[in-house]
């Protein structure tokens, strides 16, 4: 981080790469820095709150100290950057690198690419665009531009075994070949999970987001699903998603049980703490 802006001036870092290569993961290593105002932008990701980009949500949930901005705020921010600010701009695979409006800015351009491509001196669109290549996940970059589907899931809470089935089916190609899936899903115990799949890497990754448990009615925080692939059958996928979501009645039952469970657990913890304090005294 320190070598980015040795003079302490604002820094802009553009990060590009194929889907699933690890762009957000690479950026995340810099987002815990508390010495600089931090900004994150994912251009072309849409500004409708109902279909928020998963990367933007993930960064916002995992790094609350980072200001996540949308396209409409970008120009103003870049013209009036706070002193020592660091801006990370994640460039989606669907954007034309040569036509990026940010290309003219004084910035660091990082391309995250498959390891074998990072070692090559041969030209690719990444080589000609970036001034720095970083080896990312060991995957095959797609030869042609894949389809991209985004589905809003805000307010939906999933039956856990159904979620497992639907993720197995989607990533297994039941609704068209999939090369990338990422989503944020709410579960009946009030927790939200970030779920990540990259074709060529092993398994489906589940990461618990450290958020306040949502146990009173339908969650209002944003959640959703993004799938990248070919010939995707969105209607069939949406039907499966819908059939995996809990009804109001079931959600109410689950939430009542979990509230009682956590209340009892809290009570036990309190007693244990008191007993410990008494024995210490």
């Amino acid at each position: 981080m320190s070598d980015l802006n040795p003079l302490g001036t604002p820094g802009i870092t553009l990060v590009a790469g194929p889907p699933g290569i690890g762009k957000t993961t690479w950026i995340s290593q810099f987002l815990s820095d508390s010495n600089h105002p931090l900004f994150y932008l994912c251009p072309g990701a849409g500004t409708e709150t109902s279909t928020e980009a998963i990367d933007r949500l993930r960064v916002g949930y995992c790094f609350p100290q980072v200001t996540v901005i949308d396209d409409s705020q970008a120009a103003d921010l870049l013209m009036n950057l706070p002193n020592q600010a660091q801006v990370y701009i994640e460039v989606g695979f669907h954007l034309d690198l040569a036509a990026l409006p940010f290309n003219e800015l004084p910035c660091r351009k990082v391309a995250i690419v498959p390891p074998e491509l990072a070692q090559l001196t041969a030209q690719s669109e990444w080589h000609s665009w970036a001034n720095e290549l970083v080896a990312g996940n060991n995957i095959q970059a797609p030869n042609n531009i894949p389809e991209f589907r985004r589905m809003a899931l805000t307010g939906q809470v999933f039956d856990p075994p159904s979620l497992e089935v639907l993720l197995t089916e989607i990533t297994g190609g039941a609704y068209g070949p999939v090369i990338r899936l990422k989503g944020i899903f709410e579960l009946p115990d009030g927790q939200a999970f970030y779920i990540d799949f990259v074709e060529g890497l092993e398994g489906i990754e589940y990461t618990e987001l450290k958020l306040v448990r949502s146990l009173k009615g339908r969650p209002t925080r944003l959640s959703g699903l993004e799938v990248v692939g070919h010939s995707l059958q969105q209607t069939a996928m949406a039907e499966t998603l819908q059939a995996s979501c809990l009804s109001d009645e079931l959600l109410t039952q689950y939430q009542r049980q979990y509230r009682q469970h956590y209340k009892a657990a809290q009570s036990t913890d309190d007693k244990t703490t008191n007993q410990t304090e008494e024995s210490v005294a």
């Binding site: 039956d159 075994p161 159904s162 497992e164 089935v165 995996s244 809990l246 079931l250």
Partner: peptide, 9 residues
């Protein structure tokens, strides 16, 4: 049925 989705199907 092991899941809500299985029951639906």
């Amino acid at each position: 049925y092991p899941s809500q989705l299985a029951e639906y199907r």
